[in-house]
Design a protein around this nucleic acid. Structure first.
Length: 504
DNA sequence: TCAAGGATAAACAGAA
DNA sequence: TTTCTGTTTATCCTTG
């Protein structure tokens, strides 16, 4: 709304040009396959000159031709792909520019992972005489759902209600962005999956790219996550109209498992429990959070801490913290009243945030000791805590302990001697609180500290309650003994909290 | 069931 | 007076 009118017009013109190009491309595709015969001249218009050569009325006609041709044109089902991939040569479609090359991983069921949600919306698409936007007797145009008795009525409805106008163009653009975002994340996650499988010595064709990643890390995780999934076993996007767009399986690296659950406090809590290394997470998915309206899976406290620690002098004014939030996360570019209040609330509430008066006014700093003390020590040796410790420390030397834990958790793929280095794993739990922190700092490759130390279960507690750790021999045995001797009472928990990121 | 942590909302006060 | 900043309280939810 703050955009100048000129910019809006320009943006709209650009959208229109995109639409024109897409339609023209689609027609060209049809023409190439001999399915549509364009009037002389139209089909020969060079793509680059199309925007100038085709006026809106022509496009309207083209649009009608396209929709009219679809019932007899099965290949129209590729339209979703055309819209998103074939436009890579379009100068205005950004997906191809910002996303890595998208690999089409075949699924066991023969489907390609490279498709749009719209194509999944209805099985009617598979039948001749169907339309991608028509299924179950209703219009599948986003937000429409108008009931149409038959395809003819639908086509009529499509041409009247969804003609090439401002509204349809805008809706199409929104859909483009949705697809674009999903594809970007899909590409990321696909690459990650390949790397994970390669790391785990799995045959790339073995796992199901869509259903396996979670299982790969934790089949038991699904005991929780399935409660948030649909009967088909696949997490579905939130249906709430107010919920921000959530990547399906293409979420950011570490939150990928937790993000799949849902939005809001649950996810945040889960992610916090996962002890996601926030700086690592942000480094890897900076662009994602920056552009996608996805709530970051971190607590306010951890985010504030991260914001402060990212600065050279490790202090920020409140307004600078605000700016960091809005700069780093698209999500925080809205709902300002809510999260700003929450930020202030957290700053005041947590003793780990110290207000300091200086020449700039009041700035906020982080008391690391207090931050890591936030939760009462609970080092009872529970597998959960061990897992959190492992997952919170990232890779490096701790990878061995992580792998050992994995090996212990009835994880057959990792029960390979080559995967386990118990020697380096031993003694990990003897690292003291500060030592852990320093280790983390060293391990972290991007030079910043981990932003997530969920106080409830952070490794910091190891030193603070040595007696408890000794009382409960589970973590000690976990690290100090061979995997044959280790028993993990709750391997469901263990698997559940193993971050995907650590495997990659 | 309970305690703890986190998110959210809101009221309030002081300063600019 | 308005806005920003900071504090405090209350409530709800999730988790262990």
């Amino acid at each position: 709304s703050r955009q100048p009118l000129g910019n809006k017009q320009l943006a709209f013109q650009q959208q229109l040009l995109q639409m024109q190009q897409l339609q023209q491309q689609h027609l060209l595709n049809l023409q190439r396959q001999g399915l549509v015969s364009l009037p002389p001249g139209q089909g020969t218009v060079p793509l680059q000159t199309l925007p100038q050569a085709v006026c809106p009325s022509d496009l309207q006609q083209l649009w009608k031709e396209v929709t009219a041709a679809q019932p007899v044109e099965d290949s129209i089902k590729q339209e979703g792909l055309d819209l998103t991939t074939n436009t890579s040569n379009s100068t205005s479609f950004s997906a191809a520019k910002v996303s890595p090359p998208i690999s089409h991983h075949p699924l066991p069921n023969g489907q390609s992972t490279m498709h749009t949600p719209r194509r999944d919306s209805s099985s009617h698409e598979e039948t001749p005489g169907s339309h991608p936007l028509y299924g179950h007797g209703e219009c599948k145009w986003p937000g429409c759902e108008t009931l149409c008795e038959d395809l003819g009525q639908f086509v009529k409805h499509l041409n009247t209600e969804h003609a090439l106008d401002d509204r349809s163009t805008a809706q199409c653009r929104v859909q483009m962005q949705v697809v674009q975002q999903l594809e970007i994340q899909l590409a990321k996650e696909s690459e990650r999956l390949q790397a994970m499988m390669a790391h785990l010595h799995m045959r790339p064709s073995e796992p199901k790219p869509f259903s396996q990643p979670l299982n790969l890390v934790s089949s038991a995780t699904l005991s929780k996550s399935t409660s948030d999934t649909f009967p088909d076993g696949l997490p579905h996007p939130p249906t709430s109209a107010t919920a921000p767009i959530t990547p399906l399986r293409q979420g950011p690296s570490v939150i990928s498992s937790s993000t799949l659950h849902n939005m809001g406090p649950i996810r945040r809590r889960n992610s916090e429990k996962f002890c996601t290394p926030i700086s690592s997470e942000l480094a890897q998915n900076h662009e994602f959070y920056k552009n996608a309206d996805v709530r970051p899976p971190f607590t306010y406290a951890s985010l504030i801490r991260q914001a402060i620690l990212e600065t050279p002098d490790r202090q920020l004014t409140l307004n600078e913290i605000y700016n960091w939030f809005t700069r780093m996360f698209a999500y925080f570019r809205r709902n300002t009243a809510t999260w700003k209040n929450a930020v202030r609330h957290n700053l005041s509430l947590h003793k780990c945030f110290v207000r300091v008066e200086n020449v700039k006014g009041a700035v906020w700093t982080v008391d690391e000791h207090e931050y890591q003390k936030r939760r009462p020590p609970k080092m009872t040796g529970s597998p959960t805590l061990v897992k959190n410790m492992i997952s919170g420390l990232g890779y490096g030397a701790l990878n061995a302990s992580y792998q050992a834990a994995l090996a212990e958790s009835s994880f057959p793929l990792l029960n390979s001697p080559t995967m386990i280095n118990t020697s380096s794993a031993s003694g990990m739990l003897h690292v003291g609180h500060d030592d852990v922190s320093s280790t983390v700092e060293q391990v972290n490759s991007n030079g910043t500290s981990w932003g997530c130390f969920p106080p409830r279960s952070h490794p910091v507690h190891v030193k603070e309650e040595p007696a408890e750790a000794e009382d409960d021999s589970r973590p000690v045995s976990l690290m100090a003994t061979t995997n044959q001797n280790v028993t993990i009472p709750d391997d469901r928990d263990l698997e559940e909290e193993l971050p995907v990121e650590d495997l990659s």
